[in-house]
Nucleic acid binder design. Structure first.
Length: 216
DNA sequence: TTGAGGATTTCG
DNA sequence: GAAATCCTCAAT
C-alpha cells in the first residue's frame, strides 16, 4: 500500500546547484520563514543512503502568544525543542495515527515553528501516465500524508536539519526564484487549518494553483 | 493516575 | 458526518 516514491538522481545538474538551508537562515520569526520556505526542498535520507525530495508548497506558522501553538503554555518533554535554537525538527503525533513535521524557527528561547503541510513530489519518470502523475501529486498533500510518504515519525523529532541527517532543507532553485519574480508562480496567504483556537490568524501560505496543496 | 482532546485522513 | 487510535498534559 505504501506509495512508490520518486528517487532523486544525483547527476541532475539543477539539483546539484541547490544549496542546503543553514540554521541561521531559519533564525527569524516563523511568520517570515513560512512563506520563504515555499519553493524550497525537503530532503529525506534513509538508512541506505537513498534520498527523496519534495518541493514545499504549503506551510503554516506558529509563534509565541499564539493559542494554537503547541508551545503556548509551557515547555514540556514534547514541545521543548520549539523553545530552542532554529534549525531543528519538531515532529508530533496527531489523532493517534498521523505525524506532523515542523521546522523550529526564530532565536533560542523564542518558541516557534513552521508546519510543513504539503510537498510536491517529482514525477516518477517522463513516461509515467497522467493518471499516475495525478495520484502522485496528492501523495504528500497534507501534513500527515507527507510524513507517511517520507516515513517520518517521532524518532525524527528534535533532530538537526543538516545534510547527511535524516532530514534537511535546500534553497529554491534559480528557476523557481525567477518564475516567482516574474509572477508565473504566486503565493496565497490565508487562515490555518484544523484548529480550535487562533482560527482567525492568517498564517498559512501555499503555492497558488498547485495540485499538491492540501486544501487550496 | 486519569481521561479528555487533538496543527488529520479516509470512507460512507 | 464520523471513525480510527494513542500520545500528551493538565487536573486529580
Amino acid at each position: 500500500m505504501k506509495p512508490t516514491l520518486p528517487q532523486s538522481s544525483s547527476d541532475n545538474l539543477a539539483q546539484a546547484l541547490r544549496q542546503p538551508i543553514s540554521p541561521d537562515w531559519l533564525a527569524r520569526p516563523s511568520t517570515e520563514v513560512a512563506p520563504d520556505l515555499l519553493g524550497c526542498t525537503l530532503v529525506r535520507q534513509v538508512e541506505s543512503g537513498q534520498t527523496y525530495r519534495g518541493l514545499i508548497v504549503e506551510t503554516e506558522a506558529y509563534a509565541p502568544g499564539d493559542p494554537a501553538c503547541h508551545a503556548y503554555r509551557r515547555p514540556t518533554k514534547r514541545n521543548q525543542v520549539m523553545f530552542g535554537a532554529a534549525g531543528m525538527t519538531y515532529v508530533y503525533l496527531i489523532y493517534g495515527m498521523y505525524h506532523c513535521l515542523n521546522v523550529v524557527t526564530d532565536l533560542d528561547g523564542v518558541p516557534s515553528a513552521v508546519l510543513i503541510r504539503a510537498l510536491e513530489l517529482e514525477a516518477i519518470s517522463p513516461w509515467s501516465d497522467r493518471q499516475k502523475e495525478r495520484k502522485l501529486s496528492r501523495v504528500a498533500a497534507g501534513p500527515g500524508k507527507l510524513c507517511r510518504a517520507f516515513n517520518i515519525n517521532l524518532s525524527l523529532s528534535a533532530q538537526p536539519l543538516l545534510p547527511g541527517q535524516p532530514l534537511w532543507l535546500e534553497h529554491r532553485s534559480p528557476e523557481f526564484e525567477e518564475q516567482w519574480k516574474q509572477g508565473a508562480i504566486a503565493f496565497v496567504q490565508t487562515t490555518r487549518i484544523g484548529l480550535t483556537q487562533g482560527t482567525d490568524i492568517p498564517w498559512r501560505w501555499y503555492v497558488k494553483d498547485c495540485p499538491s496543496v492540501s486544501k487550496p
